[in-house]
Amino acid sequence: MEEYDVQFVDRDDREARFVVRPISPAFANGIRRAMIADVPTFSIDTVRFIENSSVMFDEQIGLRLGLIPLTTPLDDFEVGDTVTLSLDVEGPDTAYSGDLVSSDTMVEPADRNVPIIDLKEGQRLEIEADAVLDTGREHAKHQGGVAVGYRHLQRVEVVGDRPEFADDEANILRGVIEEDGDLVPTEEFDHDLTNRYPESELTVEDVPNAFVFHVETDGSVTVDDLVVRAVDTIESRANELREAVQL
């Protein structure tokens, strides 16, 4: 088994940035795609409307309900499992995702402040909904990773002094740079290399096979879970392929 070096730049439950090396661009993209399409999350899939006297059609409200992120403990459920949620709000009030009552305490709205619909006096919304566990490949509402990307780690080298009468132009670089083995996010110097290396002539190059991933989830799973599960799906598919080609 090949070993990979992972260094975190920022780390939070919902958002993280980390450097992985050594990996090929193809493998980096494979991880990115797996995070988007192959990690399953719960999402409302069927809605039974008991009463809807709001100003919106049932289908429109159903669509909004589908997009509410639900916490997904991946160890306890399998793809295809369902959990029932219900909601009963009477106007004048706003129905929020936090008003959804789940039959399973492990599967609940990740955020309680997502507005569903504003109800006026006399309007009422009463529904029962089935959330199903499925992957982003099936429908975008099941995507766990919402802002997932990567770019090369950059290395900046000072090659000399800047000519005396050169223009004072900003030298913008976004991402993470490596400086004597330390990782420095470019926010630290306002993305402007002239702030960090004044009066210097610079060369910027990509560090080969080192990628800075930026991962953000919708709250249904933690970043750690998302990344680990995504890599697991790649492994399981690779194993499947290996077994399939063995004669």
Partner: peptide, 8 residues
């Protein structure tokens, strides 16, 4: 009647 809607 209760109306069932598939979310797509």
């Amino acid at each position: 009647d209760i109306k069932e809607v598939d979310v797509e």
